[in-house]
Amino acid sequence: MNTENTMQDKVKEIVKKYKGDKSALVAILQDVQDEYRYLPKEALLTIHEQMDIPMARVYEVATFYDAFSLTPRGRFIIEVCTGTTCHVQGGMNLLDTFERSLRINCGETTEDGLFSVDRVGCLGCCSIAPVVRVNDTIHPQMTQDEIPRVLRTYMAKRYGR
């Protein structure tokens, strides 16, 4: 209950920042997503109540855009670039390998909440294709061979090593 109250307060604060401007819905959802790394249902309900926008509209916008997720994301979000250059350099095989190694499908999160795997539109890093972005770090010229090592590096970070 307590967490819900804090979440409500936090969301109210975000809405207030935009002065309840209904056109700021996308921006407000972005701020909420930044805060919680996904859009919790309670947050959407608070936005709906605070901004007097029908829940169906809030939900429509929240699901339309790729930047938003309705489910909690992993601590490390692995995004495989699926731009044309990365595609011709074998980007899809990287995605397959991540899915296989982590035993999840694209768009899903591992049970321990550590990794999410997703595809992302062209990042404009075509000169170092194929690339994979993990949170804010772009890994250039990735190969399937390197994937186990990359995953191990991030797993080690979990334990603060």
Partner: peptide, 25 residues
């Protein structure tokens, strides 16, 4: 400055405007 939210179709002008107005693109 307005940030897009990850939808290719918002490069289309009327979709971009819808997005700026806080709606689905």
């Amino acid at each position: 400055i307005a940030k897009g939210a990850g939808a290719f179709v918002c490069g289309e002008s009327t979709a971009l405007i819808a997005s700026l107005e806080g709606r689905a693109g």
